[in-house]
Design a protein around this nucleic acid. Structure first.
Lengths: 331, 331
DNA sequence: CTGTTAGCGCTTTCAC
DNA sequence: GTGAAAGCGCTAACAG
C-alpha cells in the first residue's frame, strides 16, 4: 500500500480512502491513486482489512441440505447476488443436524462473518439456537431467517407463505372437480407440515368438503417413504383423484407409485408439488408446482442481509407463492 | 487473549502456541490455558490470525453450476470434509461463464484463500485461466483441478475417467444385445464430450460394430435439446435400442421423449446416464448410471487440497467409475 | 480534502 | 518450555 501511496504521491490513508470512501477523495487524487493501483497490480489485503475494520465482507449460508434442488437453486441465487455486492458466501451444509446448526451459529459470528442466512424447513427451535441467534445479533452479526420458525428473534425474516402454497395447490385440484384430494408428506421433522396442513384443510372446507373426508397421508420427506405411502393410498378404500405433495422428493415418490400402478399418464390422478424447482420442467409428466421464484427470493435474501449489514434499512418479507401449471395436473 | 494469558498465568505467546503447536507446550501449562479459554469463552480472531500467519483456513469451491445435482452433491461432500478439517468453504458459482472464472481465479488468491477446487466440465482452456492458475500457485494458493483439462498446470488433479464412463455405459447396453446404441449429448462446450465419444466408440468397435454404424446424436447439455434430439432419433431411419446420455439432464430429456413415444417402460429402449446422482434412484424408471461416488470423490478432493496446503504429500488421482444398474436399462 | 498516528489481535523469531 | 518484542496491512479518529 505504501508503494501505491508513493507512486501516487499521497499518503497511505488516502489510498485506503480511495477504496473505502471514494467520494471523500478529490477526483484528481483518486485517478492518480487508481493509476498507481493498476500499475502495481495492487490488491487490498482482506485479512488486514477485516482485522482493522471488524467486517469481513463475508456472509454464511446455512442450508438444510445442499444436495436438494431447492437449496442448491437458492444457494445459486444467493451466491450471485452476494458476489454482485462484493460479498463472499461461506457454504455450510447442515445436513439436517441441529447440533451442527448450533455449533455453526455459535462459531460463525466469532469467526467473523458479517451475516448469516439460515434456510431450512427443519424444526430448529431449541434454547441453544435461540441463544446463539440472540448472541450473534448482539455481536452485530446480522441473521436472516428463511424459515417460518423463530420469526420474532432475528432482525430479518424472509419466508414463503406455505399455508398459501398448500391452499393453492389443493384448490387447483379441487377446481378441477377432483375428489378426494390427499395431502402427502408432512412428517413431524418439518415445521412446514402444519402450515401445509392448514392450507390444505382451508381449501377443502372452502370447497364444502368436510375435514373428516380429507386424507392426510403423513410420511417422511423421502422419495421412498412417499412412494410407499402413495401405494397405500392407491390400494386403500378411497382412492384419491388428486395428490398434493409437500416437496419435490415426495412428488417423485408419488410419481413412481403412480407409474407403477399404471396411472402415470396425466389426466388420471392430479399431482402438485409444494416447491418450484427447475427439475419440475424436466420430468415427464412435467410437474405442476406451487412456489416462489427461487432466484428472486435468494437474491432478495442476500440483498436484504447485506443492506442490514451496511446499515441501510432492510425489510422482512413474506413471499406469496404462485401456481405453475404443468402436465402432472392436466385434465 | 491477554485475559486468557493472565487467567492461566502465562504469556500471550504461550496461549497462541496452545492453538498453533499444542505439542510444544507442557502438558500442565496446556490444561491451564485450555481451562482459562473455556472459562472466558475465548475464541481466536480469525482475521488477526490470517493477517499474521498468511493462511486463512478457507478454500474456494468453484463449480460450473451449483443448481445441477452433480455439483451440489459434490459441494456437499467438499463442505463436510473441509469442515472436518477446520476449513471453511467459499461457494463460487461459475454459471458456465469463463469470464467469471478468470476473474475469480485472479482475485481469490489475493483475497487470501489457501486453496481452490475447480470443478466443471466446461471448456476453460484460455491463456488467462492458465496464467491465473500459475500465478495462484506462485502465490502459494494450491489449486485442485476436477476436470480433465489443463492437467499439467496445477499441482493437484482429481478427475473421473470419462472415457471409461462412456465405455462401460455403452458396453453394458451392447452386452444386452442392443443395437444400434446412440451416444446422446456431447455439445462442443464440454470437454468431456470427446472423452465420452472415445469410450463409446471403443465399446462399439470391441463389439464388432463399425464406426460407420455408430450414432452420435450431438446436442447441447439441456433437457429440452436432448428431448428434441431423441425425438429425432426415434423418428429417424434407424431407431436405436439403447441410448447413452452424457449427463442426467440429457437423460431426463431422453426419458421425456421416450415417454412421449410410448416407450417409457423399461425393457424397450435401454438408457444409461454418464453421471451418478441421487436423483437416479428417485426417477421412474430408476436411471441406470455410470459414475463415481460423489461423496467419496468430493471428500477426497477437499482432503487432498488441504493436505497440499498443509504441506503434507497429496496425490492426484483418476477415479474409476462404476456401473449402477437400475431399471432404465433393464432387459 | 489529506496526512499523522495509533493500534486491530495474533504469530513468530529470538533469547533465556 | 516459555517470555519479550516486533510487526502482518490496513482503517479511523483527529488535526490541519
Amino acid at each position: 500500500m505504501l508503494d501505491v501511496a508513493r507512486a501516487a504521491g499521497v499518503s497511505r490513508a488516502t489510498v485506503s480512502r480511495v477504496f473505502t470512501a471514494p467520494s471523500s477523495v478529490a477526483e484528481e487524487t483518486r485517478t492518480k491513486v487508481m493509476d498507481a493501483v493498476a500499475q502495481l497490480n495492487y490488491v487490498l489485503n482482506s485479512a488486514a482489512r477485516s482485522l482493522r475494520s471488524g467486517r469481513s465482507n463475508t456472509i454464511a449460508l446455512l442450508v438444510g441440505d445442499i444436495a436438494q434442488p431447492f437449496h442448491s437453486q437458492l444457494a445459486k441465487a444467493v451466491a450471485h447476488a452476494a458476489e454482485g455486492r462484493g460479498y463472499s458466501v461461506l457454504l455450510c451444509d447442515l445436513d439436517h443436524s441441529i447440533t451442527r446448526l448450533e455449533r455453526l451459529l455459535e462459531s460463525l459470528p466469532l469467526q467473523g462473518v458479517d451475516g448469516v442466512i439460515l434456510a431450512t424447513g427443519d424444526d430448529i427451535d431449541t434454547d441453544a439456537v435461540r441463544a446463539a441467534i440472540r448472541e450473534a445479533e448482539e455481536r452485530d452479526t446480522k441473521v436472516l431467517l428463511g424459515t417460518p420458525q423463530l420469526a420474532g428473534i432475528a432482525t430479518l425474516v424472509m419466508t414463503t407463505d406455505y399455508e398459501s402454497v398448500a391452499y393453492q395447490a389443493t384448490k387447483h385440484l379441487l377446481d378441477q372437480e377432483r375428489w378426494p384430494v390427499a395431502l402427502l408428506g408432512g412428517g413431524a421433522s418439518s415445521v412446514l407440515s402444519p402450515l401445509l396442513k392448514q392450507g390444505y384443510l382451508r381449501a377443502c372446507s372452502e370447497a364444502g368438503r368436510s375435514e373428516a373426508d380429507a386424507i392426510l397421508a403423513v410420511t417422511e420427506y423421502s422419495t421412498d417413504a412417499a412412494r410407499a405411502a402413495t401405494q397405500g393410498l392407491l390400494s386403500g378404500p378411497v382412492r384419491p383423484e388428486g395428490i398434493v405433495a409437500s416437496s419435490v422428493s415426495v412428488a417423485l415418490g408419488a410419481m413412481s407409485a403412480l407409474a407403477d400402478a399404471g396411472l402415470g399418464t396425466p389426466g388420471q390422478i392430479g399431482l402438485v408439488a409444494c416447491e418450484e424447482v427447475l427439475l419440475a420442467e424436466q420430468l415427464r409428466p412435467r410437474l405442476t408446482t406451487v412456489g416462489t421464484k427461487l432466484d428472486l427470493q435468494g437474491a432478495a435474501m442476500a440483498d436484504a442481509l447485506i443492506d442490514a449489514i451496511q446499515g441501510n434499512s432492510a425489510e422482512s418479507r413474506d413471499w406469496v407463492p404462485q401456481l405453475n401449471l404443468r402436465e402432472s395436473s392436466a385434465r
